[in-house]
């Protein structure tokens, strides 16, 4: 693979730095983030490669990478980074930007989960776990996922189909409407 680097090479990195508040140029590629990442074996790009690709200004490569979606937000990378780079925050920024710019979802289930989760809060104020799991399975066409588990949970009285809504639902809805960066226009 040959990447063509032009004089604007730093533009994308600067955008990410601005959006995240984390200076991309600080990363010196030691790899400690990759060394401690619990999900790295599922990733096509390791965390330090994502940082490098941002430094190289390769926007498409970064925003269509599944890596940010696989990030479990455990913050091990951020905690141990010797340059104090908040890598987990960068991953958040990349997810938000990828949604906003309509990049193809390499981990559609993660995107779907986040959306259903937030919809549930928006409509009820609180998360309804049972409804969340059902809606997620329906949306991702995994009708029998965790069915056995669901049955057992039902027996233990942990499953409830009735709502656990709050009286301030409207206040929560308003929060959603007023929050910036919540822009999922779908894949382009």
């Amino acid at each position: 693979m040959i990447y063509q680097l032009n004089a604007n090479v730093r533009n994308f990195g600067e955008t990410i730095s601005e959006l995240s508040g984390v200076d991309i140029s600080t990363c010196y590629q030691c790899g400690k983030c990759t060394a401690g990442c619990p999900v790295v074996m599922e990733m096509s790009h390791t965390p330090n490669q994502i940082m490098r690709l941002i430094q190289l200004g390769l926007k498409d490569e970064v925003l269509s990478s599944p890596t940010p979606w696989l990030c479990a937000s455990c913050e091990t990378c951020t905690t141990r980074c010797p340059k104090e780079v908040d890598i987990a925050k960068i991953m958040d920024t990349l997810r938000i930007l990828a949604l906003k710019e309509g990049y193809k979802r390499k981990e559609p289930n993660v995107v779907a989960f986040n959306k259903i989760f937030l919809d549930s809060i928006k409509n009820n104020g609180r998360l309804q776990e049972t409804k969340l799991a059902m809606a997620f399975n329906f949306k991702t066409l995994q009708f029998f996922k965790d069915m056995m588990l669901g049955q057992k949970l039902f027996m233990k009285g942990k499953i409830s189909f009735s709502g656990d809504a709050i009286s301030g639902v409207d206040a929560v809805k308003a929060i959603f409407e007023r929050s910036k960066g919540f822009l999922d226009k779908g894949e382009r």
């Binding site: 937000s73 938000i96 949604l99 986040n114 937030l118 007023r178 910036k180 960066g181 919540f182």
Partner: peptide, 9 residues
């Protein structure tokens, strides 16, 4: 899901 979607949220 909130911090993966919107910092303000």
């Amino acid at each position: 899901p909130a911090h993966a979607t919107s910092e303000e949220l």
